[in-house]
Every structure is written in structure tokens, then in C-alpha cells.
Amino acid sequence: MDIVVCVKQVPEVKDVDLRINKEGTDINNRDDLVMTINEWDNYAVEEAVRLKDAHGGTVTLITIGDEDAEDVLRRGLAMGADHAILIDDEEFKGSDAQGIATGLYEVLKDLEFDLVLTGVQSFDDGWGQVGVILAELMNLPYATLVVGIDVQEKGLIIHRELESNTLEKVKLSQPALLTIQTGINTPRYVSIMGIRKVRNIEIEETDANELNLPVDQIGLEGSCISVRTLSLPPAGRAEMLTGSLDTVCETVADIIRKKGGIS
């Protein structure tokens, strides 16, 4: 089974004081942020490698990003992927989900595969759209929020996750596209040694020009959004408890006793 996985590099923002530039157009400390693989995509790569181990075939990774995005590809190769393609182009800056899917489509349409995996959503933009748009562009059957894949002789039996502890079982013909939800597996640990081992695997690089992508379909020009203004959420309602560890814990203990009815 030949599998293509779309992966994205996203910034790690927990414990980071995000700041916004004066114009409100972007985060202004972007260059200081540590980049990592999008959590959902990590599960997708793991799933692809497991399917390959069980059924044979290859795993190819694709990302649209800058040259640093090579890191997520190397990481995926260390997990067991065979090939990696980097679409590196400034022209994609400001793309909406349609623009990104269009870029991925231009590469995918020339590949042979049985299955395409994406994550459910990207942590930073959170569109939750690229996978399904790509499926539509490729005219592939698809399923979103996938938490279980059973490969059968004639197609796939998929478990989709719905709300309130309910799953939906669907059958898909192949080739198909699935958007992978966290928890579908336990992604393997990737060591620095592991990444070093794959440093000689060549990463194929391409760009919008080479893909004959009209620039008016990607980036800001291709986006359905004309103006984007960012702001920090207004201060919340929480009363912040400060002071020494002991004072804070005493206050919390009082709140618990009072509100919880504990004597």
C-alpha cells in the first residue's frame, strides 16, 4: 500500500507570550518560536508507517513550508517514511486552506498511491479543511476524524469520531483520503540519533513555478480573505490568586471547602 502523508510544521506556543505587531497583521515574535510537527500529523505519519509495516508499500511525506520545514520531513523519515517532498515557496504565504490544498494537489496528482493521510486540523490556523478540499480536488472518497482503519480486500472500514462518545463506521473504496484524529495510535519516539540516520535521504524540492501554479490561486491573492486583524483575547474573568505557595494553597483550600461543601 503506497501512502502519501501531508505534514505541516507549526510553532509551539504553550508557555509562550505571543505578541502581535502594531498593524495587527501577524505575530511579531514568530522567529523566536520553536517549531514542531503538527500534533495531528504526527499521528498520521505513525499510522502510515504502521500500515506500511502491515501491508507493504511506501510512505511519502509532503509539506508546504519554508526551508526549515525540512525538519518535520526528516523527523517523519526517522519514523519510517521512505520519501519526502518539500514545496518551498514564499508565494504560499497568506494562503487559505484552498491555497494550501491546491499546492498539495499539484504534487499529488502526479503520484501513484492507495491512500492519502492528513491531520484533522493544523494547530496554528485550525481550518480543519485542507484534507477534505484535497480529496475533492483529487475526486477521492474521504472520511474525516478517523480513529480506526481496517484494511480489507475490497476497500477500507473506517471509524470516524463523532461527538459524545459515539463513533461512526463507514466503508470507503480505495484510493481514499483520511484525516487522522489524535489517539488513533501511540506515535513512536523520535531520537536525535534516529534523525541523524536519515540525514542522507534526499528530499525532493519543488516550488510554485515548477508546479506551474498560477500565483493568483495561492497566497494572499488566492485567499478568500481580504483583511485579517489579530488581537489578544481580552483579559478573562478569572480572579488570579497570588502570594506565597502557602497563602495560595490556603485560599484554594478555603474555596474548595466553601464551594464544595466540605467541612
Binding site: K14, D15, V16, D17, L18, L232, P233, G236, R237, A238, E239, M240, L241, T242, L245, D246, V248, C249, V252, A253, I255, I256
Partner: peptide, 30 residues
């Protein structure tokens, strides 16, 4: 009641009481 190391964690937008602290300090003491 929310305990988080990150003063900007969105949980503080809906918590009634917020504590910016390492939970491993908080837990044994409480």
C-alpha cells in the same frame, strides 16, 4: 479553578480562580 504555568493559557478566560504556578509545587502542598 485553574492551575497553569502559562499566564496566557486560555483556560484563565473561563476559570473563576486562576493560579499561575507549576502544578508540582501546588499539588503536594494543597
Amino acid at each position: 479553578i485553574a492551575v497553569n504555568k502559562d499566564p496566557n493559557a486560555p483556560i484563565f478566560n473561563i476559570a473563576h480562580y486562576g493560579i499561575v504556578m507549576d502544578m508540582f509545587q501546588f499539588l503536594p502542598k494543597i
